[in-house]
Design a binder for these strands. Structure first.
Lengths: 163, 163
DNA sequence: ATTGCTGCAAACGATTTGCATGAGG
DNA sequence: CCTCATGCAAATCGTTTGCAGCAAT
């Protein structure tokens, strides 16, 4: 019950360490090599909150090391997804987004179609549905995607009832 | 309880009539015009089962009238979606798919990542979650997307346990 | 040394738009 | 007649790949 700020910092430090270890093992398993660029991308990715597009992350990485190219970020994210460090968030607007999934409880997003903002929520029923439907149709379900689209409070007030 | 075949035919005939009416009204409301091409695309779209990509529908339309262009099919589908005749099905593989949504009960899809096949299922809880989460966060939810990805029975048998 | 990594530029593929021509109201 | 629809070709935009030189094992 110490200061929340400090806990958060320690959490994310620990998470970064674990992430590095997981990536390292994944690379070793596939006979791939480590690199300074990949490390940098991982550090910066782990510092993000919510979800980032490849472009977003690329911009962040640029401020840290302008020499790193888009392709490197793109390939790093794929790699992170492969070893479970990142998972793709699908907002269905033509851009791929990722968030870090290390020790992250299953959650979903509700997206405002006016402002593009999104909020996270938890809905345990969804996992149950996945299991139930899988059983029912002899499927082995691996994952699901679920998003709600609508209008957030702020945007609803801006545009009163009828457009 | 008459022959199912006949019922289906009559259902789809009636559905086509209603669809034409809805489209007509939608066009009138927006000051748009009718056209033979749009009618043709609608007829063929209403005959489809499951979901079609723009490309799929374009191919179907081609066999009926080779003069109709891709763009026309593309724009017709957007129009159908606008007036609620079609809704987009999102499999997240980079292609937009549509299915007709006229008098269609809410349903979802489970997609096999091996063979690309999909099955429809009903899960009423999903709508409930949408409402509940909306209320909880002062959102006005309009729609949602939900898909389950996994491996179907047939593909699981082809590739026994470990790849 | 060998093999993977990087970053650029170019390829890709589905979607979307500009425009001249043709049809509907 | 005026406006919208059509169909072609070209533009778009995010994603993905080929390749020459660099870095890690």
């Amino acid at each position: 019950m110490a200061g929340k700020r400090v806990d958060d910092q320690e959490d994310s430090r620990a998470a970064l360490g674990e992430a590095k270890r997981i990536l390292r093992e994944h690379l070793a398993r596939l006979g791939l090599k480590q690199s300074a660029q990949r490390d940098a991308v991982l550090c910066i990715f782990m510092r993000t909150r919510e979800h980032v597009s490849t472009e977003d992350l690329y911009s962040l990485v640029k401020t840290h090391d302008p020499a790193i190219g888009y392709t490197t970020v793109y390939r790093a994210l794929k790699l992170f997804a492969q070893c479970g460090l990142a998972s793709e968030v699908e907002f269905h607007d033509g851009v791929a987004r990722y968030e870090h999934s290390l020790n992250r409880r299953t959650h979903h997003h509700m997206v405002c179609t006016q402002c593009g903002g999104s909020i996270e929520f938890f809905a345990p029923e969804i996992d149950e549905v996945q299991q139930r439907i899988g059983r029912e149709f002899f499927f082995t379900p691996a994952r699901h995607t679920f998003q709600i689209y609508g209008t957030c409070e702020a945007c609803r007030e801006k545009e009163p009832s009828a457009g």
